[in-house]
Design a binder for these strands. Sequence first.
RNA 1: GGGCGCAUAGCUCAGCGGGAGAGCGCUCGCUUCACACGCGAGAGGUCCCUGGUUCAAUCCCAGGUGCGCCCACCA
Length: 807
Amino acid sequence: MEPLYKPEGVEERWQRTWEAEGCFRAGAGARRDETFVICVPPPNVTGALHLGHALNGSIQDVLVRWHRMRGFDTLWQPGYDHAGISTQNVVEKQLVREGTSRKELGREAFVERVWSHLEETGRTIMGQYRRLGASLDYERERFTMDDDYIEAVMRFFVHLWERGWIYRANRIVNWCPFHETAISDLEVVHEEMDDALTYAVYPFADGPLPDGVAGITVATVRPATMLADVAVAVHPDDERYRAAVGRDVLVPVVGRHVPVVADERVDPEFGTGALKITPGHDPTDFEIGRDHDLPVLTVLAPDGRLNAEAGELAGLRQEAADERVLAWLRVHGRLERRESYRHAVSTCERCHTRIEPLVSLQWWCAMEEPRQPALQALRERRVRYHPESQHQFAMRSLEEIPDWNISRQLWWGHQLPLWSCPDGHVTCVWPPPETCAECGSGVLERDPDVLDTWFSSALWPYATLGWPRETPELARYYPGDVNSTAREIIRLWENRMIWTGLELLGDVPFTDVIIHSTILAPDGRRMSKSLGTGLDPLEMIDRHGADATRYGLLKMSSTQDVRFAEGMIEEGRKLANKLWNVARLLLATEATPEARPTAVEERWMLARLDTVRAEVEARWSAFDFSPSVQALYHLTFDDFCDWYAEAIKPRLRAGDADAAATALAALERLVALLHPVLPHVTEEIWSQFHETRLVLSPWPEPDERYAADAAALTRVHEAAAIFRRSGVAVELGSEDERRIFAAVVRPERAKANGNAAAELERLRQEIARAERMLDNERFVANAKPEVVEAEREKLARYRRELDALSS
RNA sequence: GGGCGCAUAGCUCAGCGGGAGAGCGCUCGCUUCACACGCGAGAGGUCCCUGGUUCAAUCCCAGGUGCGCCCACCA
């Protein structure tokens, strides 16, 4: 064993060995009947993993390795998501760079192109998980476009159809002109943008009002949509427009007569208080138009250009059309003014193209019924989000959940299992039908739309286990236990897995959802590739090792948002190196591990190991990782290395067989406790004195035999602290205590550079403080008894120390 | 506009009713036979501000200030 632990080589060797020996397979090493199941949130097949994935993988792997050691039949399910629009976006942009387009390629060739693109990226992702040491059951890798998985998606759709929850409706949707598809509200991001607000005059059709007012001024950021205006609306209580309501005004350019209507949804404070109504291109206008029986006009085509309705402006891009309308307004004296205007604009989360609200015929899934059992499950805490604030958010989201637009006008994804005959009958079955279910026509055309990518993700926990087939895996591993993910995905994924699981299998897919922190760039900005603030986890692994990276990420996992700090990963590297070196020291004895403690420091060490075992178990049960790795760090550095190893060194050198055997037993426990966090270095150390694999070895059993001895060493700890501060050796009661003191402090070598006077002063102040509190009757009467007792003990201790120092 | 969260040492963060902590950085001293990715000793803090509750507040409550995230159809 070399003096410096070098993770490169060691880590990859163990990653290969573990996998080759089947240590990660579902059920490997199981010693009890209970199962523990996590499915990895399937990463988008397009991208490489980022630090968030690495953090999430570390969290899950700690839980999985811990349960596997405890003997659970453990399954950690890997896989990836076809990520419909994201993937299509990536490939389309490649095509643009190559000077072609998906339309030129045609649907079939395009989909083939996507598949060939996926081959490499899929391998990259699983390679990254392997480098992190993630103990996924790699042989069970699943993809949402596997044949079996497609089967599950189709069955699910047909199920919803038979339930009567699928319907088709013409509604305003978010339309992405680049991808030429509808997207859901959840796929829209809002971006602040500088824009111009155009104030245009709509003159009254039959001349000015009696008071001489010639028209109504409205404000808009998209002048081109005027062509589809069907009314002007004002607030019913707005005195300014009382006389105007019921009259007609003239729409600019097209000269259409449209009515002035009164509606409470108009904000009289904004702009001029008058709102042009364009039901075809604005969600609010759509509702107002519907309630006033106004027609719906559309001037924008799916590609973002103006359509035939726009007359001579047809075929222009919207920006160009805006300019033409503006010019018309200027020429005709209808432009009142323009002002700059900064506001939030909806954009496509994938391509950041400005979203056009568009009336469009889409398929929807009604949510009123299916959400109810999920909401109930959350209320009853049959599924629990951690932390609690996210549970509240998840419940609110289910309460407010709108119907789900599930159709996308994309080519990459699961095509809807819907066929129509020439008579317009729609057949929904799977496998594909031969004839129309209603009229028997053999001429059927499949709906070209594909499903929202989250539609298939929603089935992940059970479709990966074989559903809808009744497989043994499904029976054994459903429902699972834990799901871990980032905040932004609660509504997109977590809640949907819960309601689909309840609907199809009658049970929630997991009992706990961990919402982990977001790792920000060191400057506090969001980590993202486009900002150049992204960080590749592999870079950290190359520099410090996978164990160190896992440690650092877990340490950063506690609060909501943490700035990335490489120092925490370095801390992990030092921990691994420290552990390695203390193992070097102890393994040099070549003893057989067996706990036969003869001295107080040995019983104390075993007691400490058990205390930290209990603490770590409590932390991990509560999904609280940062304090757990902190406890393990101090256990290793302070307790194990600085105290225990130093205390027994003289005996090891003297060839004490009991001390050596006990030391290795203690080391066994230490590396077992550390294994879920630092799997590689612990496995490497374990292999130095075991034929077995630590990954499948039992987690340490509770052992309270030595708890009473923990206190004895506390006296030595304090004596050492005083000695180091003051240079004064406090008298110790027992031979044991004096021996340990000498071994750890090594007074013959440590030059006392402390200050006895300062130490005396410190003790006097502490004594005065404790006396003040104990003299306070209200404190003694109201404080918890153990707090008062602790204060008495402190006072007594300080007095003892003062006496010892003074003499 | 709505919701949530955060302000603690130079930096990144733990702690959260009774002694202000860690890692890194900094200063000083150590070629101590596991480890210089180490060992020992230190310096460094009105725990954001103002009130309130309490015998006792960094911690609980209210208000303020600053910052972050999520959500949102004000044209």
